[in-house]
Each structure stands twice: as C-alpha cells, then as structure tokens.
Design a protein around this nucleic acid. Structure first.
Length: 456
DNA sequence: CTAGGGTTAG
C-alpha cells in the first residue's frame, strides 16, 4: 500500500524545490511520484500554486486549479488565498475580487486570511471604506483577528491618507491589550514620516525602544530617508547618532543614505567615520556603495583614493555605471579641473554611455565657476537637451558676473519651454536688473513670470 | 497575508 507518508515526503521535496525556484525539477518529482503510485494531494497542488504565482504568473498559478480538478482533487481555501494574495501583490486588484467571489460561489468558506487579503486589496484600490467594512465584519464574526489584520489595517489607513485614524486604531488596540509587533511599529512610523509628522514618528520610535523590541534596519532607514528627503539633515544626523549610541547597526543601504547626506551637508569628518564604521561592520560594498564613497573622496579632493576604488571595482569584476562617471566629472569640476572633466565626459561617450545631462550640467557649472562663462554659453548652445539645472546654473553665474540682461534672456526661454527655476534664481535676476538700472525690463520680466506661473 | 531602502548636478 502506498502510504500517506510517501505523499508527505514528496510534498516536502516539492516544497523545497519550489522554494529554490526549481519548478521544472519539482514537476519532474511529481511525475516520478505518480509513476511510482505516490498520488499528489491538495497540499502538493497548493505548493505549486504558490510557486507558479510567485515565479511565473497568476495565470500559471490558476492553471493548477484545472490540473487539480482533473486529478479529482478540489481546491480549498488555501489554494484561493494564495491566488488572491498574489493578485493583490501584483496590483491585479479586480482579479483578486473575482477570485474571492469565485471561491465563495463554489462553496469554499473564507477564513481570516482570506479576509485579510480582501482588506489589503480594497486598500490598494483606494477604497478604505470597503476595507473597513471587511474589518468590522472580521470583528463582528469573532474571527479572532490576528496581528496581520491590524497591520494591514494600520498600513492601509496610512497609505490612504488616514494617518490619524491609523494612530487612533493603534492606541485603541494597545488599550485592549494588543502588543504591537516590530512590523506594526514600522508601518506606523513609515506612515507618520510620509505624512511629515516627524515628531510623532520619533515618539513612536521611542515607544518601540521601551517596548522591548529593537528597531531594525527597516525602522532606521525609514526614519533617515524621511529626514533627508525633507532636508532636515540635522534631525537625521541626530537620529543617526541616537541609533549609534544604542549600538544599532546599518545595512549597506542605510550607510549609503547617511554618507551621502553627510557629504551633501559638508560633514566630511562624520562621513569618514561612517565609512570606517561600515567597513568595520563587514559590509561588502556593491556598486552603489562604491559610488557613494567615490563621491566622498572626490568632494575631499582625494582623487588618488577615488581612483583606487575605481581599480577595486574593476578587480571585483564590476563595471562603473553612469553614476560613477558623473560623480568623477562633478568632482573634477568642483576641484577646478574642468578640462579633465570634459575629457572624462568624452571618454564616457566613447564607452557607449548615452547623453549625460547631469554631467553636462556639472561642466557648465564648473566652467562658470572657473570664470569661463562664455565658454559655458557656447557649450550650452550645443547641448541637445537642457533642464532646469542647466538654466539655473547659468543664470546664477551670469548674475554673479553682473550680466543680468543675458540672464534675463535665458529666463524668458525658460518660461517659453515651461522649465521651472529656483526661487532664489528668479530673485537674483529680477533684483539684479532693477539695481543695475533696467527697471522697466525687470517689471516686464516679472509680469511674464507671473503669467507663466498662472498658466501652469 | 502585513513594513523600508541606497549613489550624481543648480
């Protein structure tokens, strides 16, 4: 007799192969099993559904439903839950709803997990009311909601702009004895950060520490990213030192964010410390990490160190990307080596990289700063594509050289091309015109700027 | 089933 345990054994084997993305091998094991008289059961097919959904497509997953039926096995709630979860994850939301309905219609009773999926789907559809209805349903039917239910709810509320309700739900749950998991904290912190409520986010972070959980890499990268995005570098660095004094570690992503922000704010000593700490923690640099470090060295004019890293990239069999080259070009410009920067741009082109607008902008700025504004204007005229950086850079430097009418002309072509410029540049051009006697020209330009902004 | 994310220019 073929015993139950051989099917179970086969399932374990198939599950392991599926996990390693070896679907063909898994199918081969199944065929072998059937030939030897080991019959697949609902677990076997559910494993395959999960794997096909994840690695191939939802349709491939769904086709297993047909195969099961042909083999005389009915799909169960787990089969459908995997399909629905997969559809939701891939944002095929109407598909999720159809699958849910199909499941109910063939008489399968949804479980807590099905309802969680449904809520998640409604939130992604931007229908928080529908999601809330499902949530109330879960509570009313005494489905004993698990922490995932609450997490999906809190996350969904945040993502749909109801950060306050999310916070209230969180507090309510706590009052009822719910102990938040690290995931719950992270969801809430992310929501608060995105809503620019940094103060509250920090309070929740503090509570997280007091709760006995430790903030993980996700927690900190969420907070840091948010501080730096809103240009609150001081606060970000404060969080960073808080984290350090607590003995927390970054992953490679976190270090890159932190080092880049320090370089941008001119905190070179701290950036170097951060880099050393990263090395000590055994983070193996990837290309983005190298780019970040090369940027640090270039901005410190340590070109020897920068080129050492370039060698290291090659030695490890990696290839520099457009970021690497742009960083070098900008570094050379900022150190006054504009000719070398231009040579490097030519070299980059010969390597088959496409048009590099950022690099051109760096060189335009570099030429201006080195006093070659006419040279910069010539290059500007030859450029195929320009953006607000190109114009802002030129106009700002023209103003510095007191060539306000030329800057004014550029401003007009910005308005015509629908290119936005910095407020400070607008101010510099207008004030410059006024103070150098071109009052009526300034007035005309100002009204054109107003008109353009109204039409936008 | 639920959470985040890295690098360049004004």
């Amino acid at each position: 007799m073929v015993c139950w345990s051989s099917t179970k054994l086969m399932n374990i084997c198939i599950a392991a192969l599926c996990k390693g993305q070896r679907l063909e091998k898994a199918e081969a094991v199944l065929i072998d099993g059937i030939r030897l008289g080991v019959l697949p059961d609902v677990v076997t097919y559910n494993t395959l559904i999960g794997a096909y959904c994840r690695f191939v497509s939802i349709d491939a997953g769904y086709s297993i439903i047909h195969r099961m039926r042909e083999a005389g096995i009915n799909p169960d709630v787990i089969s459908f839950n995997s399909l629905i979860a997969c559809a939701t994850r891939k944002c095929l939301l109407s598909r999720s709803l159809d699958l849910f309905e199909e499941m109910v219609q063939i008489g399968i009773i949804p479980d807590a997990c099905s309802y969680n999926n449904l809520m998640h789907c409604f939130f992604k559809l931007g229908k928080p009311d529908e999601a809330n209805r499902v949530f109330q349903d879960i509570l009313n039917r005494n489905f004993s909601p698990c922490s995932a239910t609450f997490n999906i709810m809190i996350n969904g509320l945040c993502k749909n702009g109801y950060t306050n309700n999310a916070l209230m739900l969180f507090r309510n749950l706590q009052r009822h004895g719910f102990v938040p998991h690290i995931t719950t904290y992270n969801i809430l912190i992310n929501g608060l950060c995105k809503a620019r409520r940094l103060g509250t986010a920090r309070r929740i972070l503090k509570e997280l520490g007091e709760s006995g959980h430790r903030p993980n890499a996700i927690t900190y990268s969420t907070i840091l990213k948010c501080c730096f995005r809103s240009r609150q570098f001081e606060l970000g660095l404060e969080v960073l030192s808080e984290m350090r004094s607590e003995g927390y570690m970054f992953d490679g992503f976190g270090y890159c964010t932190a080092i880049a922000a320090m370089v941008k704010t001119g905190r070179m000593i701290e950036a170097n410390e951060c880099m050393n700490q990263m090395m000590k923690n055994g983070i193996i640099p990837d290309l983005v990490t190298y780019n970040t470090l090369i940027n640090l060295y270039c901005k410190e004019r340590k070109f020897d160190d920068a080129f050492k890293l370039l060698d290291e990239i090659e030695k490890r069999g990696m290839e520099c990307d457009k970021y690497t080259h742009t960083i070098i070009i900008d570094g050379l410009c900022k150190s006054g080596y504009v000719e070398e920067a231009q040579r490097h741009l030519d070299y980059m082109n010969s390597m088959g990289f496409g048009y590099n607008l950022v690099a051109f902008n760096c060189i335009i700025d570099g030429l201006c700063k080195a006093g070659y504004i006419d040279h910069a204007m010539k290059l500007f005229k030859s450029m195929e594509i320009k953006d607000s950086f190109t114009y802002t850079s030129l106009m700002h430097n023209l103003c510095k050289a007191r060539r306000f009418r030329c800057a004014s002309k550029l401003m007009l072509s910005c308005l015509k091309g629908g290119i936005d410029v910095l407020k400070s540049t607008r101010r510099a051009v207008l004030d410059g015109l006024r103070h150098s006697g071109f009052v009526s020209e300034a007035r005309k330009l100002q009204s054109k700027i107003r008109l353009a902004r109204l039409l936008r």
